[in-house]
């Protein structure tokens, strides 16, 4: 097949669309059960604005939460590994999301799945 693609000079482009029905949602369920405040996030971005890791990498807890809730979990292990667990985000979250524990729970849920 790959040879064919080379022969054509182009390949099939992977769809960027989030396919909610095709995605698996078990990881988000596990995390929500372990840290129910996950559901309270309103995507305000206060956490990512204050996050030390976010200033030097493209890490964003707000983004991680959205990816998790849409079932886009394939890259999450790598994402949460950027967090230093400093806890600054927890100080600022207006919805009282337990952000630090959330990250721990995401790591727990995704790392076995992705290693």
């Amino acid at each position: 097949m790959e040879k064919k693609a080379r022969q054509f000079g182009y390949t099939i482009t992977r769809d960027r669309q989030i396919d909610y029905d095709a995605n698996k949602h078990d990881i988000s369920k596990i995390v929500a059960a372990a840290e129910p405040s996950l559901n309270l996030c309103i995507s305000c971005g206060t956490c990512s604005a204050t996050c030390s890791a976010a200033l030097f990498t493209d890490f964003s807890l707000r983004h991680v939460i959205l990816l998790l809730r849409r079932g886009e979990t394939s890259g999450l292990a790598k994402e949460v590994a950027k967090c230093m667990l400093c806890g600054k985000c927890q100080l600022v979250c207006p919805r009282n999301v337990s952000t630090r524990n959330l990250i721990i729970q995401i790591s727990k849920a995704v790392i076995p799945a992705q290693l």
Binding site: G9, Y10, I12, T13
Partner: peptide, 14 residues
């Protein structure tokens, strides 16, 4: 543009 053709192809595939 040949290099862009994958886009056309993928639209039809969808």
């Amino acid at each position: 543009v040949q290099a862009n053709r994958g886009f056309s192809l993928s639209c039809s595939k969808k």
